[in-house]
Design a protein around this nucleic acid. Structure first.
Length: 640
RNA sequence: GCUGUCAUAGCUCAGGGGUAGAGCACCUCAUUGGUAAUGAGGAGGUCGAGGGUUCAAUUCCCUCUGACAGCACCA
């Protein structure tokens, strides 16, 4: 006699085992029609499942956000059926729901191309129109393996073999087609609806391992209704509109070319932006007690062997050799071993700790070609890199201090929200388990002291220590990992760093590796996309342009520009032989935040007419007022 | 690195076995116009690189390079 508790607290008794469908029907015809699945004691189940014990039940309808995952998962199944109907001999593997949609990985000698998508999508719509019910069957493991093997589905058979013994093997049927699946599913294929679209094809390794065969993956997006789908497609367009590669070209910030793959040619305006960011970081670091150093680009491989990088990252390092010397030099991929060299140069006292050593040095890493992405992922870059040499007791205090600095920096750049992930010990790694226990415990308790809430990112730490990853969220909801704080007991040991203790003994410092913006290249890419090229005035590469209306006002325009430049603003003049309409249009498209329009009237009265980007209104003011206003607006936040 | 797609003027793109086209940008001239495109003219290309097929290749085939998407990677 199951008693079913509903979300409103009411309890319904049933005389015997009862299915979700029956419960929904007993509540009302509206629910019976709308219910797609149910959540039983927190677990999603098919509506057709029978309940024979007391339970809390919540019905999932199309209005629930939870319906999305079901729709996407089912769309993946339907896509697999469509593909196997159209391309016999294709093997199925896995096809989950993902954020925004779904995919299915297929094994086929000839991979799918974008041209195949319309036919597959059409077939899917047929299957959905047929509205075959999803039915669940429990199978014996060996029989299930035989079933899939008999159909040549060796990937599925392998999946079943690797399922834990405790797992119930279930198969879901839709019409004549079936798939190994844990479920749950909607009532039938018709519940998927029409708000989906196949988006792209891609290769993907079987089980995510590059040593395995490459499968052919088809991605789709699926939503509850057309409105949601349209909104999603619009969001993709928005991301495309903000693409830093496109805006970088439009605003003439930088370019890249074949002869320097993965390296940025910074143009004047982009470099101005870069310098603004770097200068800001330098001021913040000084404020927070860092010293700044500069270390060599090329270092003997012996140093990298000692640090452990040669073993771990040799294939990702650029190597330089010279004819006359029997030496192998590596272009530095990071600064830490160099900073230890400075630390080791001379006797250090416990009185000097914590010693915060920063560097904006250029690093080079031979990133795989497929990883490169605009200026976001490059082979030559500089970080706001620093290493804090301290005692174990100082870890917590330094973490607090670091998080405070990071908060300010992110807020100043327009990212008030960020999340923290704790990445613990990876395999393989350097250092004993005892050292790792100590490092992880120290970082955990430092988080507690700093009041930092985190989620765990298992096995993702650096080879020498656990790390915190700081992930910020941009204006259109995308996440970017920028900051990091890593606790390292290993490198000081490997490179024999030590200091003199209060008792005149010797002790090893702990190293905290840390960065806030991470690579400047990447961070600037994020800044560009976050504001879509419409920078706050202190970052804008061209904060203002002076546009003349008639030739007679050109001299005055140059005077205005000269005064603004004298006030530290990087303005340009537009005295081209064009109408003011054309100048306003061109400067607006170039995303110049302020257009100072000057004609005969302004020249006579020593005024300017300011038009701000995104507004079609104008403000008339005296030249002195304009300079004062712009100068105030263009002041970096830490200098206000 | 792997799979797929792509590479034509500075940019965005059309074209197609018989040695190339548009718009914008650029240059010249006229025009001095008050807040998102004034008009006319001109110049600009080894069609990514190398090889092959062909009477003929920018077009078809192969190799390489690079870009893009995803996967793998990210000290």
């Amino acid at each position: 006699m199951p008693a079913i508790t509903l979300p409103d607290g009411s309890v319904r008794d049933y005389p015997g085992p009862v299915t979700g469908t029956e419960i929904a029907a007993s509540i009302g015809p509206g629910l019976a029609k709308a219910a797609l699945a149910m959540e039983v004691d927190g677990r999603m189940l098919d509506l057709s499942r029978t309940l024979d014990a007391d339970a809390s039940v919540r019905f999932i309808t199309r209005r629930d956000a939870d319906a999305l995952e079901l729709i996407r998962h089912d769309a993946a199944h339907v896509m697999a059926e469509a593909v196997q109907a159209l391309y016999p001999g294709t093997q199925v593997t896995i096809g989950p729901a993902i954020e925004g949609g779904f995919y299915y990985d297929f094994f086929r000698n000839e991979p799918f191309t974008p041209d195949d998508l319309p036919a597959i999508e059409a077939k899917m719509r047929e299957i959905i129109a047929a509205n075959a019910p999803f039915t669940r069957e429990v199978w014996d493991r060996d029989e299930a393996i035989r079933l899939f093997e008999s159909r040549g589905e060796r990937f599925k058979a392998e999946l079943i073999r690797d399922l834990p013994a405790s797992e119930t093997i279930t198969i879901y049927r839709q019409g004549d087609w079936f798939d190994l699946c844990r479920g749950p599913h909607l009532r039938g294929t018709g519940d998927i609806g029409g708000a989906f679209r196949l988006t792209k094809v891609a290769g993907a390794y079987w089980r995510g391992d590059h040593r395995n065969p490459m499968l052919s993956r088809i991605y789709g997006t699926a939503w509850r209704d057309q409105k949601e789908l349209d909104a999603h497609l619009q969001q993709l367009e928005e991301a495309e509109r903000r693409d830093h590669r496109k805006i970088g070209r439009q605003m003439d910030l930088f370019h890249m070319q074949e002869e320097a793959v993965g390296s940025v040619f910074w143009h004047e305006k982009g470099w101005r932006l870069y310098r603004t960011v770097e200068a800001y970081m330098r001021r913040r670091q000084e404020e927070f007690g860092y010293i700044e150093v500069r270390t060599p680009q090329l270092l003997d491989r012996k140093l990298w062997e000692a640090s452990g990088h040669w073993d771990n990252y040799r294939s990702h390092m650029f190597i330089a050799e010279v004819e006359d010397e029997d030496k192998v030099l590596a272009v530095k991929p990071m600064n830490c071993p160099c900073h230890v060299q400075i630390f080791n140069h001379g006797l250090r006292s416990y009185r000097e700790l914590p010693l915060r050593m920063a560097e904006f040095g250029a690093c080079h890493r031979y990133e795989p070609s497929g990883a490169l992405h605009g200026i976001m992922r490059v082979r030559a870059f500089a970080q706001d890199d620093a290493h804090i040499f301290c005692t174990e007791d100082q870890i917590a205090g330094e973490t607090v201090r670091f998080v405070e600095m990071l908060r300010r920096v992110y807020a100043d750049f327009g990212f008030p929200d960020f999340a923290v992930k704790f990445a613990d010990r990876p395999t393989p790694r350097s250092g004993s388990d005892e050292v790792w226990d100590k490092a992880e415990a120290a970082l955990r308790s430092a988080c507690e002291t700093a009041g930092v809430a985190f989620t765990v990112n298992p096995g993702e730490g650096a080879f020498y220590g656990p790390k915190l990853e700081f992930v910020l969220r941009d204006a259109i909801g995308r996440d970017w990992q920028c900051g990091t704080l890593q606790v390292d007991f290993v490198l000081p040991e490997r490179l024999d760093a030590s200091y003199v203790t209060a008792e005149s003994g010797r002790a090893r410092p702990v190293m905290l590796h840390r960065a806030i913006v991470g690579s400047f290249e990447r961070f600037i890419g994020i800044l560009i996309e976050n504001c879509a090229g419409r920078f706050p005035l202190w970052l804008a590469p061209t904060p203002a342009a002076v546009a003349s209306i008639v030739t007679d006002a050109n001299d005055y325009a140059e005077t205005v520009a000269a005064k603004l430049k004298a006030a530290g603003l990087a303005v340009v003049t537009d005295t081209r032989n064009e109408k003011i309409n054309a100048k306003v249009r061109d400067l607006s498209l170039a995303l110049v935040p302020n257009i100072l329009v000057v004609g005969r009237r302004e020249a006579e009265q020593q005024t300017v007419s300011i038009r701000r980007l995104g507004s079609d209104k104008q403000d008339s003011m005296t030249l002195d007022e304009a300079i004062a206003t712009l100068k105030a607006d263009a002041t970096p936040p830490d200098l206000r």
